[in-house]
Design a protein around this nucleic acid. Structure first.
Lengths: 201, 201
DNA sequence: ACCTGAACACCGTTCAAGT
DNA sequence: ACCTGAACACCGTTCAAGT
């Protein structure tokens, strides 16, 4: 039976998830699918073209936000970002792949489009929501990358037993800092100030 | 006369600046220096090892900040980031190279260390200054990358004549947003609110 | 329509052997 | 000490030719 583009993407996501981007070559992919390399290029224009589909599939499980309901818009932004992080974290080099896909075909990665809408719901003006989205996505991608790179240095599965989610907190903190800067700190909700210990000089 | 490590780094920076990271291969480098590829590996442990030196040289012209003077610490942070951006912008893929160097040898890239000190001068606690630095650097690297990728799509030198520094503003805006979130918006200095046009809904 | 076989023009890294 | 020559094990992409 004929190979399909979906099978290509499936196999690519599999290799990426198990071995990382360095091992995701067209030749390795062909081997996995028991075809010659040239066969891949009938289904796909280039490797980059394939990676765009891989990125879209990685984020394919993200729920579209329910807009206009009574959920606090600021919480919706934070929620979406946490969801993105949760999906990207277990897949090595996923941030790189999504970032590349985003620069190649910005419209192809749907959840990243929704984020801009949520920001406007939260009161960011249209001419600033694009930049605000970039600010938050750079934080997301950077956090995911640093988490994965640090994880690959130590033995797999050797997380400190007592403190597992230390940089999940750091990520959430960063999101709140940016949102505070964007929306202004509302009195009584100074989120980024929460765990203050030392005096601010 | 014998090849030196400095000559390697010089030639590497040259290729990077002129042609980008994709053309910066060990073989290309050897050709440029009129030696065999193997010769490079007497001076350098690996390509990544070389790239750390390349990154350090790219940021070698950054002034160390004069701490403890009467310059406003918040302005010092913003100034350092602007300086970093100015240096990185003209070199293709420079953000990638510096980011890689930073994860491989965090101490090797001095200016990125100084940034943390400046943040603490500005009143960020020691346990948060590391994360705050990451937040700002992710913004920096993201902004540089997006600027360069967009630039490579249009013809070289075809900037819109009237509006040259549009995303220099966007970058500075992002820095102020993050600093607002970190330090709190002081009344009468709501920097990120400056060019507000539409009502915040 | 879909795939094979084979080529083209590359990579990073190693290492015996030369000087 | 410093470099050559040559190899090892790879890359992405193209394309005539087959079925």
């Amino acid at each position: 039976m004929a190979l399909t583009r979906e099978q290509l993407v499936d196999a690519a996501v599999g290799i990426l998830s198990e071995f990382g981007l360095a091992d995701l070559s067209m030749r390795r992919l062909a081997r996995e699918l028991d075809v010659q390399v040239g066969a891949l290029y009938w289904h796909v224009k280039s490797k980059q073209d394939l990676l765009v589909d891989v990125a879209a599939r990685l984020l394919g499980s993200i729920h579209p936000p329910v807009r206009g309901t009574d959920t606090e818009p600021r919480a919706a932004v934070a929620g979406m970002l946490t969801e993105l992080r949760t999906v990207l974290l277990p897949v090595p080099d996923s941030a790189e792949v999504v970032q590349l896909a985003q620069t190649m075909q910005p419209a192809a990665i749907q959840p990243l489009t929704w984020l801009r809408d949520l920001l406007e719901d939260a009161g960011i003006s249209a001419e600033r929501s694009g930049w605000a989205r970039h600010l938050l996505l750079n934080h997301l991608f950077g956090s995911v990358t640093v988490h994965q790179d640090r994880g690959s240095l130590q033995a797999v599965g050797s997380e400190a037993p007592g403190a597992p989610a230390l940089d999940a907190d750091a990520f959430a903190w960063g999101v709140e800092v940016v949102l505070d800067g964007l929306l202004g700190v509302r009195p009584g909700r100074a989120s980024a100030e929460r765990p203050r210990i030392g005096p601010p000089v």
